[in-house]
Design a binder for these strands. Structure first.
Lengths: 223, 223, 223, 223
DNA sequence: AATGAATGAGGTTTCATTCAT
DNA sequence: TATGAATGAAACCTCATTCAT
């Protein structure tokens, strides 16, 4: 229905499409959608493992247990698949970040970030796609749009915490947000190369340091 | 000048071409090295522009004005070429960072970093190779070795500035160094996607913010 | 008939093309096998003519009227193709040797051998692959397995004829079988270089000589 | 004098070049010749190990401790080198076969053959070149010429032994010689693939069998 | 006499993509 | 809806050969 090459696709769930739509919270899901998601997941795992150019359609397909043709059936071409993957990655990222976003506890936020990074292929794939985005305008556009939205929300959170006195206000909120985002990116960047720098207590030290650096200086002095 | 197909080579020793000819009897030894460097430079530019997998030997060769065979003549294979490129990049980076390293002025250091990034292909290539290092152990080894050396030097500088009171000492020097390195990496990572975030005054704001975050809290309070 | 680029394929099922079309619903399954056989045949001819290393995938493909990609689609790589070819050659060889194997007439057997050799590319390809087997363990394994099976059957035939008094029994059956096999190999080896040694009557003389050498000595004396 | 990088090498033994020429029986030997021989030997070893197409000039050169250029300096091209190698192989073969050729003892002849085969690369290289001769007329010519000369000498020996009653005379001498040559070729052909068939006593059994098959039938009956 | 830098053709292989079924 | 056979371009790499030195 939202894909280009599925002329008869809409007819399958004509019995009662809505009950599905309701159950799974707004997503028009069906066999088609779930198969597409399988492919997306396989794509993420493959890109994480082998990089963008290493993730051939054949490999993605076989990891998902489908045929090569299936991939090009569900996605116009490789670029389209990768675009879908990237949007999907941002979707999941947003979901995770939003849960408890209201709490405004930065430490908890970092903990979640760490869990995401160590647990899944998501960050690895993100990183690989970022490298590819340098050459693929379609990907760059997605990054610009979604990443700036992410930073905007981060900025809002920081601003809120500046008002409540939890975060220093002698640096503009958007600058602090940028620094936090850059830090997280920088860490994620080196994580696969030197994972030992991010184990156990050292990760906590890094987190503590960030919190210290952005806390109001007065607080630190009093301590 | 003495090579058949190296038009650019002649510009290298334009100071006094004869002294070379005279000094080196028989075969031109220097040519080998300079040709190799030509190829390295072409490789860096190509990787920066097209990424690791986009930088085919053909493209690198033709950018250097040579044939594909020449590349594999100078380097055993693509991996060897890329290894050489990465070491070369770190060499140049070290050289740049070491100049004025004794001064210990972080602001100056950031300014140099910014110049490097905006001026050349070097950071772009670094980033692309880092993404590739995820899949190529030989590259990962180089990163581990040289990046940790870089962080060690940065840590030493930070420690020195902690002793002189310029940098806060309530966070371990190696943690601060790591944060600075990660910040720089994170910035470099997003720079090609959203260059507008790093123009003119904003880059200064980011730099100032870092300096503020790592200065002793007391200093900030007094201000 | 149902393949795009297989002009020769149509000749295979000229008996009644429709029964295939009717029998197999959906995708044409048989085509796959027949196409594969086309490629095998082309491979045999090419190896016979140009040797193992001369038989590039490009040449094999174009002889079969296909693209290079088709070859690597049907066979994982060149080695796999050659393995398939060798097994195929042994299969055909076995088939031919088995027909009338029960008769136990060695002269007839030699005649068949001669027909095989002069008629087709099979022996030429066999010989080329044997030379290659020296460097390719996978081929060597096939030779060991199938060639020893062939000698075993030959030994059984010889033993049978020893019991019936047609073959001398003062030499062990397996040794005689080995000699016969070696002779055939040696002839086949020189055949392409000096074909004039194996024409018409001289081939018969050679055959007669073998039969004389393995007949019971008493028989020869009486003559 | 016999080292690689001596530009003035030819001038070194100008004292009396003839004594060498005399000592080594008519061969115009000198540095040039010995270096050439080094390359030939390296070529034989390389072809034996890797086959014709696997024996690149680079590999041959480096095995001989020389540069690639040296090979093309001493031989017009690869084909010329291989021709020289093949002639050289036949030369050595002839030398070995001629020693004691007068004795006419076939058993001793087989023993020597066996020693040659198991000891050296010579037969392996021969076999590889024979396979290549199929496609290279220049090699085929050499085989025809030298191999037929070899068979002629073998025929003469057999004829002599037929007259002395050691060999059966109910088969023409040239046919027997051909069979012996073919047997030897056939054995050599399979030797690298199934060496276990030619160890110790089994080799003796094979030899004995040949002798039995070519001995006068009367002799065998009396036994 | 000898070197080795450089070439360019050709090898195997992988890949995204198309399309008949 | 989904498959998978087939394509053809392009990748990396090796090689025989040439030629200035």
């Amino acid at each position: 229905m939202m894909t280009k090459h599925a002329p008869a696709a809409a007819f399958e769930d004509d019995g009662d499409p809505d009950d599905q739509t309701v159950a799974r919270r707004g997503r028009p899901v069906g066999d088609r959608e779930s198969k597409r998601n399988e492919l997306l997941r396989a794509g993420i795992a493959t890109i994480a493992e082998l990089g963008y150019s290493g993730a051939s359609l054949r490999k993605v397909a076989s990891r998902a247990g489908h045929t090569t043709g299936a991939v090009t059936y569900y996605f116009q071409n490789k670029e389209a698949m990768v675009r879908a993957i990237l949007e999907h990655l941002f979707d999941e990222w947003d979901t995770l970040l939003d849960i408890g976003g209201a709490v405004g506890d930065l430490r908890q936020r970092f903990r979640r970030w760490k869990e995401m990074n160590t647990d899944s292929d998501q960050w690895m794939a993100q990183f690989q796609l970022l490298a590819q985005a340098r050459h693929e305008p379609a990907l760059a556009e997605i990054y610009q749009r979604r990443y700036s939205a992410y930073r905007a929300r981060l900025t809002a959170t920081v601003a809120m915490q500046q008002r409540s006195g939890e975060v220093r206000d002698d640096i503009a909120a958007d600058i602090i947000a940028d620094q936090i985002a850059a830090l997280a990116d920088g860490w994620a960047m080196m994580f696969p190369i030197e994972p030992e720098r991010f184990v156990g207590t050292r990760m906590d030290e890094l987190t503590d340091a960030v919190l210290k650096m952005i806390e109001p200086p007065a607080k630190a002095v009093r301590r």
